[in-house]
Amino acid sequence: MTTLSAPAEKSTAVLRLGTRASALAHTQSQGVADAITAATGHPVELVHITTEGDRSQAAIASMGTTGVFVTALRDALLAGEIDLAVHSYKDLPTAPAPGLILAAVPPREDPRDALIARDGLTLGELPAGSKVGTGAPRRVAQLRALGLGLEIVPIRGNVDTRLGRVAGSATGPGDLDAVVLARAGLSRLGRAGEITETLDPLQVLPAPAQGALAVECRTSDARTRELLGRLEDSRTRACVLAERTTLATLEAGCSAPVAAYAEVAEGEDGPELFLRASVTAIDGSDGVRGSSTGPLADAAALGRALAEELLDRGAVELMAITS
């Protein structure tokens, strides 16, 4: 007589997902948590982690380090306090973290920048002398380079705080005429309706990996790696790899005035990457731009080649300009 063993019970262990406590980080992380549960059946709980970037109100460019929103999450991962972490991909240092692996890059949101201006104005409609707030040196440099005579004001804070500084906004009296934020964050928070203009990349090229999320876990955690792999979007990963390889080859951090944006288009032999990148002097006085096209499998090589072209054209000298 043959005895049949009972089927193994499906594991429903709760996965602990580390996230910053800001509204945007929480929303992004909850979206990933819901996707994990939908794809695998595993419940996920969010664990709030406070990072250096959350504690400080200093301008990012003045904090003297990369990864200010990342280190505490990675430390919690390595200590086994959480099983995975969700990052805004553009916040990650370009160097890999020993013991951790980027297990999934989910589909990307619209990576373009967005203007939220008083009276529904577009960038071109803002009068000379208008005060425009942004915390990113890349945006500062590119907005100045447009030659519109705008006064660029450095700002920090969460989305509500930034939007509240726009004159006539629903959340405050405001001291600015406009702010520039990532469209992806506004969309994830359900606030895309407040955008007065989505900026064309020909005007303001996005940051490397803007709009993309990075889901990280321990390299040794094979079970979690397999589960997270079900969220992977290969085209998004290829685009972001090209963009961030450009950044890394330029030896620039997330606070440098470097922009890179890759898109997938259909070529004669199948899908191709179209990569654009720029380096702009922070005072807007000069800049270099370039583009490259190639197969998705060559994403890293495309990024390196385009960065080397920009270096040959004076990118290092442009990044050294500080005012």
Results as ranks from 00 to 15, higher is better:
residue 123 L to E: 09
residue 123 L to V: 09
residue 125 E to R: 15
residue 130 S to Y: 08
residue 131 K to C: 07
residue 131 K to H: 14
residue 131 K to N: 11
residue 132 V to H: 11
residue 132 V to D: 10
residue 133 G to R: 13
residue 133 G to M: 03
residue 135 G to Y: 06
residue 138 R to P: 00
residue 140 V to N: 05
residue 140 V to Y: 01
residue 141 A to M: 04
residue 142 Q to D: 02
residue 143 L to A: 01
residue 143 L to D: 00
residue 144 R to E: 01
residue 144 R to Y: 14
residue 145 A to G: 06
residue 145 A to R: 15
residue 146 L to H: 11
residue 147 G to W: 12
residue 147 G to P: 11
residue 147 G to T: 08
residue 149 G to I: 14
residue 150 L to V: 00
residue 151 E to V: 03
residue 153 V to D: 12
residue 153 V to C: 07
residue 155 I to K: 08
residue 155 I to S: 09
residue 155 I to R: 11
residue 156 R to S: 12
residue 157 G to T: 11
residue 159 V to K: 10
residue 159 V to C: 01
residue 160 D to F: 15
residue 161 T to H: 03
residue 161 T to P: 00
residue 161 T to W: 00
residue 162 R to N: 09
residue 162 R to M: 07
residue 162 R to I: 06
residue 163 L to N: 06
residue 163 L to G: 02
residue 166 V to M: 03
residue 166 V to S: 06
residue 167 A to S: 13
residue 167 A to F: 04
residue 168 G to A: 05
residue 168 G to S: 04
residue 169 S to I: 00
residue 169 S to A: 06
residue 169 S to W: 08
residue 170 A to P: 03
residue 171 T to H: 11
residue 171 T to M: 13
residue 172 G to R: 14
residue 172 G to Y: 05
residue 173 P to G: 10
residue 174 G to Q: 12
residue 175 D to P: 03
residue 176 L to I: 08
residue 176 L to W: 02
residue 177 D to Y: 01
residue 178 A to E: 14
residue 178 A to F: 10
residue 178 A to L: 13
residue 179 V to N: 09
residue 180 V to L: 10
residue 182 A to T: 08
residue 184 A to F: 04
residue 185 G to Q: 09
residue 185 G to P: 12
residue 185 G to K: 15
residue 187 S to V: 15
residue 188 R to H: 08
residue 189 L to H: 06
residue 189 L to I: 12
residue 189 L to F: 09
residue 190 G to R: 03
residue 191 R to H: 07
residue 191 R to C: 07
residue 192 A to N: 08
residue 193 G to Q: 14
residue 193 G to A: 15
residue 193 G to T: 14
residue 194 E to T: 11
residue 194 E to D: 08
residue 194 E to I: 06
residue 196 T to P: 12
residue 196 T to V: 09
residue 199 L to W: 14
residue 201 P to D: 04
residue 201 P to C: 00
residue 202 L to N: 15
residue 204 V to W: 10
residue 204 V to N: 03
residue 206 P to R: 09
residue 206 P to Q: 08
residue 207 A to I: 00
residue 208 P to C: 14
residue 213 L to N: 12
residue 213 L to G: 04
residue 213 L to F: 08
residue 214 A to I: 01
residue 215 V to E: 06
residue 216 E to G: 00
residue 218 R to S: 01
residue 218 R to T: 03
residue 218 R to N: 02
residue 219 T to K: 12
residue 222 A to E: 13
residue 222 A to G: 02
residue 224 T to C: 03
residue 225 R to V: 04
residue 226 E to T: 12
residue 226 E to R: 12
residue 226 E to I: 10
residue 227 L to S: 07
residue 228 L to Q: 13
residue 228 L to D: 13
residue 229 G to H: 10
residue 229 G to E: 07
residue 230 R to W: 04
residue 230 R to D: 05
residue 231 L to C: 02
residue 231 L to V: 06
residue 232 E to S: 01
residue 235 R to M: 10
residue 236 T to P: 06
